[in-house]
Design a binder for these strands. Structure first.
Lengths: 336, 336
DNA sequence: TTTATTTACGAATACGTTTAAGTAAAAACA
DNA sequence: TGTTTTTACTTAAACGTATTCGTAAATAAA
């Protein structure tokens, strides 16, 4: 690493101590404006870049946050990252991305590896098959963490979610008002409050209209894409529901294929409605009625709160911020 | 940071020097198996995690790579990241993500900030409106860089691309063979070899069939989404092409809306074909014929090469790796 | 004027790790 | 047997920055 320009280089060139240089670079009140200016000018001229490792080693500040999500190739999460990145960039923070692929062990490995001081804080959307929250309970004691969208209820950290209960309720009501008599449910995230709330909203609406569901009308999410397709197909063939409501996007698209396979017309024979942030939802055949979450805003909100915590300007660890989703009615549920 | 367990802690506990501990942790040949085992056991017991800053400061190895892309909320790039992440995780590397939002200045700011030793290497897909490659020429001298998909031709670095020329050629031939007489082109990435090759493939096919295009049939990509829609609409209304081929996904979807607006039937009045990795392409109305790039594989390949360079096992800086895209014919170009 | 305070800097140390160089004891060799 | 080599460790010095403490000079207060 010959030729690297460090504080030492600047100090020698200006005939001042490295302490002065360091302080000047950090805009310390201890240094005269005159000296600061000289240091800044030379730093610019020599293209000095602060060594992040050294800086962090000394100051315990990494200017880096980690984002742990199930899958990046998913509209919701990539939009959320977009929001996170926007906030991070404004603060000159760096963003590490980790994908768990819905695998709880990988999730644990990631969080463990982040305990060594690599990042200042963490944003997490929990993997769908994570059952044991003990691990997270330990984590939040050691480093600032904000959970978003996929969250546990009883963890001592800020959580950013959407109005899952209400939006599932409204969506189900919409189907019922369209005349649906038998509404199936594609269940995911069942161990998280997120999934529980969505299902509860569905149940509430049914109850209110004196409708029932049976276990056979519920399809549980499977890690295996092919199996999801098979399970949905089996359910639709045997139960013959007139509507399906999906708690996640990944389970909605297979419905289109199932309908084709079984020669069912959407929406005449089968209406489909899903939690989804697909930007092609309006272009599908037929266009898909969605519960659209404000993914970008969720990301911004989560990152914003995390930075407030890092700035020590936020002190309500247990708060749950709820943003509103919107039901966008399209052809897949048209009452026609 | 009280209670942090460091090499010092382990050394004291075992009554050996910190050098021995460090070497043991790094599985050095200088240390007896017996001692190593003791260190490993204690490290595990006390949940020792190596401090990355200190380690990096000394060894100049960050175990981190950066990925600079235009936009994360894009199927191609999120799949590519997926591939990159898979390779990185296998090597216990961390992945920093930076989005340029097609902004050249942000791109420069990112690369500059990565010069301070924050990462061991960089993967870049160039922003569409980056004209000046001088900056990248400097970059590749200072740190290992692999370019993917959106690349410059004359830069001293490995590049991973797809067979843009051939696939655009084949796609255009497909349209011509379907009887199209007037094929418009939605032009993007015109300053990159990627975009140039795609356009050249289109031109080649036209020439071969003794067809021509005029400048009025070419729509150039604009950063503003709304303007793209307007430009396409204006072109289609005035030129009345019977087919449109889009060099990027973002320009294909507006075509659907334009067709609706102008009451044009796809594919009867207007055929649409696009470079795209949309997973909903088969479900669109009508399903979209795409040139699908092996995004995941591109990511894996790019990361793989970067690690080979970091391992000093790769020495052909100027090589261009070309992966094959596939033309997937669907209803939007059906010959009826 | 003398004393107290402020300003602007420097010396020295610490952050936790890696590594070059040195060394005593053990093993191998002549 | 004495000599060389190998083994298994230790000492000490870095990596580049931030920060505590000390201090001389300048300024303000008495």
């Amino acid at each position: 690493m010959k030729g690297t320009v460090t504080v030492k280089t600047l100090a020698k060139e200006l005939n001042i101590s490295i302490a002065t240089v360091s302080k000047a670079l950090n805009d310390s009140y201890e240094i005269s404006l005159e000296t600061k200016q000289k240091v800044w000018d030379l730093a610019k001229k020599l293209k000095y870049e602060r060594n992040p490792s050294a800086s962090n080693l000394r100051s315990h500040k990494t200017k880096t946050i980690a984002v742990i999500i199930p899958e990046i190739a998913n509209n919701f999460f990539s939009l959320a990252i977009n929001g996170i990145e926007e906030i991070a960039r404004k603060r000159d923070y760096h963003v590490l991305i980790y994908q768990t692929h819905e695998n709880s062990e990988i999730e644990i490995a990631f969080t463990d590896s982040l305990l060594s001081g690599r990042v200042d804080g963490i944003l997490i959307s929990v993997s769908s098959n994570t059952n044991n929250k003990e691990h997270f309970k330990e984590l939040v004691k050691k480093i600032p963490v904000v959970f978003f969208d996929r969250v546990f209820e009883d963890i001592d950290a800020v959580k950013i979610t959407t109005d899952d209960y209400e939006s599932a309720y409204n969506a189900t009501c919409h189907l019922i008002e369209c005349g649906c008599k038998k509404i199936a449910y594609l269940f995911a995230l069942n161990n998280l409050i997120t999934g529980k709330n969505r299902f509860a909203g569905y149940q509430k609406a049914l109850k209110e209209y004196n409708m029932v569901y049976t276990d056979e009308m519920i399809v549980n999410y499977d890690k295996d894409t092919g199996r999801n397709y098979e399970n949905i197909k089996a359910m639709v063939s045997s139960q013959k529901p007139d509507a399906v409501i999906s708690s996640i996007e990944d389970l909605a698209l297979p419905c289109y294929y199932v309908a084709r396979e079984l020669n069912l017309n959407i929406p005449k024979d089968l209406k489909i409605l899903s939690f989804s942030n697909l930007n092609t939802a309006p272009l599908l055949n037929p266009s898909l009625t969605t519960i659209e979450q404000p993914a970008f805003e969720i990301g911004k909100e989560a990152a914003g709160i995390l930075f407030k915590i890092l700035d020590k300007k936020y002190f309500e660890p247990n708060e749950n911020h709820i943003l509103k989703s919107s039901l966008i009615k399209r052809d897949s549920t048209s009452c026609g």
